[in-house]
Design a protein around this nucleic acid. Structure first.
Length: 608
RNA sequence: GACUUGGUAGCUCAGCUGGAUAGAGCAACUGCCUUCUAAGCAGUAGGUCACAGGUUCGAAUCCUGUCCAGGUCACCA
């Protein structure tokens, strides 16, 4: 983890600052403060200064913490604060100062604001030490439609990739289809038993749902057949393995692995339906990948690696013939890599896949976006590659994220076909967005086509934002009903603000000019200060590989702009200087909102 | 049992490397549309930061212990 963070750390942030806003101002003030200490206390020059934004109740923009400094020079905090305040006011960045209980509150000068505007007039980040990064996300199973957990995975992966790209890294997104194994065989048996030659077209069902339907039919029948065994006291999983229908799935799996023509034909047919369906969902969500990997094409190569490791003595064989690696010296257990019957395991194919990826891309970092229930799996994978002395083992990084839980805090179930399906949730939210447009009374302004586009953009944006605003490592309690509510801390609030800026700018015919007005209103100051933290926010998100802070930044920007918009006139302002500058700030906000939402994967409606 | 991640308002979440009276949104209650889009703005109310110790000028934040919850520890994926 740490190694990775250091690699990504940009040259822009060489000075570690204690606050998220206004780095450039702090840097300049620090220089002034150092001068003060050189003159007055040459024996004790502080290594760092702690700044924070001033509390709302007090006057000023930024606050210097004087306690640590007072301790250093052995003076009372208030005395030192007063001396520092007077010294700082002589610089052209500060126009006012006030000491309260050892806190030195400072008021920034117009020049300081002008400086902030200049620093952030473009929102581009230029950084060095760029990396080639491959990021795997999505990873659907082809036996049933994707569910809410996949949504978090896709949105997170997409946004992280976009953030890294924005910083300047060379990012390649890839997908993995888990297209083989017992699960898809269950759907296949379901189809053989109940399919009657139907197709998604004949039934008018989206392909992935069509395949999933037979998975559910299989599961239902399997549970039914398992009842007698459970009645005898057998555990559920054991009992299901005893059923006739499960045996059929197992036989099909063996046939498939042996290259049976009929089995493979059916497998191709059903996977084809699945891909057809899931790719529609990807398109709807704007999820893309540069290269698709398929488990079916990789899993056999894993066996070669196992054999190689066994020959070279890295892996061992137990008395039954199963091959394992001993990780007890890492504080872990033995991990089996190949069954005693010679067939491969989940980890076997990942061993092959990771090597394949490095052969394909020769990248500096491989990021896996996979849920935290697989933390152990990736830890082991990394150790195995290390033991195999693969130089890339250190470049494997598991970007793990928490579960999406239902309202009562329990896990969303999808195995038995409960409504955790991604498409169902999206449809419901889009439908709600549409009815909200009608409720707002604005529906008449829009054509049928526009109405549909707005609902789609707003509804999907709401779900994306709801899942992205929570810190990635934490579990999310997701209530579809709340995502449907488009008021408050939501994506649609931001989209609405964006549309506001856009509408305002479309009425403006003058030039854009960053010339600041002589006097700034508090709302303008807040906006400038907040906008000035955009770049550092992005850098922190890149380091943390987590878009949550960007989501919150964007939300706050929208809030601050809305206050600005309602409290001040822009186009109707009579003072030309003020009007021009407010249009300029509106444009900058528009740019920042547009950039942030695009990174987060939330689309920008033209109107709403 | 071991490892791991969490516990902040009725609910969903912020709170970055310790700083001022712990912040948002939802839900509840008040106001504001003949004025640049009211999917908005302004306001009221709501807290023993799981608990107990410790470190210090100062702790939601750091340390120790306890309790509670999720996840993992397969010849499943």
């Amino acid at each position: 983890m740490m190694r990775w963070l250091i690699c990504l750390q940009s040259s822009i942030l060489q000075i570690q600052l204690n606050n998220r806003n206004m780095e450039s101002i702090y840097r300049l003030l620090k220089a002034v403060l150092i001068e003060f200490f050189k003159t007055n206390y040459p024996e004790s020059i502080p290594a760092d200064f702690i700044f924070q934004s001033t509390n709302k109740e007090h006057q000023g923009h930024i606050t210097l913490m004087v306690f640590p400094l007072a301790k250093l020079v052995k003076k009372s905090p208030d005395d030192l604060a007063n001396a520092l305040g007077i010294y700082l006011i002589s610089s052209d960045l500060i126009v006012g100062q006030q000491v309260i209980n050892g806190f030195l509150n400072l008021q920034l000068s117009p020049k300081a604001f002008q400086l902030l505007i200049q620093d952030n007039s473009d929102l581009k980040i230029e950084s060095k030490d760029l990396k080639k990064i491959v990021l795997e996300y999505c990873g659907p199973n082809t036996n049933k439609p994707i569910h809410i957990g996949h949504l978090r995975n896709m949105f997170l992966g997409y946004a992280v990739a976009a953030i890294l790209k924005e910083i300047g890294h060379d990012v390649h997104k890839v997908n993995i289809f888990n297209d083989r194994g017992i699960a898809i065989c269950k759907s296949m048996v379901g189809y053989l038993e109940y399919g009657n030659q139907t197709t998604p077209e004949s039934e008018g069902i989206k392909g992935d749902f069509f395949v999933g339907k037979f998975y559910v039919l299989f599961s239902t029948e399997c549970s039914r057949q398992a009842q007698p065994f459970i009645a005898q006291g057998m555990k559920k999983e054991e009992a299901e393995a005893q059923t006739a229908i499960f045996q059929k799935a197992n036989d099909l799996l063996i046939k498939w692995e042996n290259g049976d023509i009929e089995a493979i034909a059916l497998w191709n047919l059903m996977n084809g339906w699945f891909y057809d369906g899931v790719r529609k969902t990807y398109a709807r969500l704007g999820i893309d990948s540069e290269k698709d990997y398929y488990e079916s094409q990789e899993y056999k190569k894993g066996k070669d690696i196992v054999e190689l490791g066994y020959q070279s003595g890295v892996f061992h064989k137990d008395e039954t013939g199963a091959i394992y690696i001993d990780l007890t010296d890492k504080g872990l257990d033995k991990k089996f890599l190949q069954r005693s019957n010679g067939t491969s395991l989940y980890i076997t194919q990942d061993m092959a896949l990771v090597k394949q990826r490095f052969d394909d891309y020769h990248m500096d970092k491989m990021i896996y976006v996979v849920g935290d229930e697989q933390n152990y799996h990736f830890k082991v994978l990394k150790y195995i590659m290390e033991a195999m002395q693969e130089p890339f083992s250190k470049d494997i990084y598991h970007l793990s994220y928490g579960l999406v839980l239902g309202k009562d805090g329990s896990k969303f179930k999808s195995r038995e076909g409960t409504p955790a399906d991604a498409d169902m949730i999206l449809d419901a939210v889009v439908e709600e967005a549409k009815s909200q447009t009608f409720e707002s009374g604005k529906a008449e302004q829009f054509s049928e086509k526009e109405l549909k586009e707005i609902a789609e953009s707003v509804g999907i944006g709401a779900v994306k934002f709801a899942l992205l605003k929570v810190t990635a490592t934490k579990n999310i309690v997701f209530d579809p009903k709340e995502a449907v509510d488009l008021n408050g801390d939501t994506g649609s609030f931001i989209q609405y603000t964006y549309v506001r800026t856009k509408s305002l700018l479309s009425r403006w015919e003058g030039e854009l000019n960053s010339q600041m007005a002589a006097e700034l209103a508090a709302e303008e100051e807040d906006l400038i200060i907040h906008l000035s933290s955009f770049k550092s926010c992005l850098l922190r998100c890149a380091e943390a590989l987590d878009p949550a802070e960007l989501a919150l930044f964007t939300l706050n920007l929208a809030k601050i702009y809305n206050r600005f918009y309602t409290q001040l006139s822009v186009l109707k302002e009579e003072n030309i200087e003020k009007r021009n500058f407010r249009v300029y700030l509106t444009n900058l906000t528009n740019q920042a909102l547009s950039k942030s939402l695009t990174i987060l994967g939330v689309t920008l409606p033209e109107k709403m």
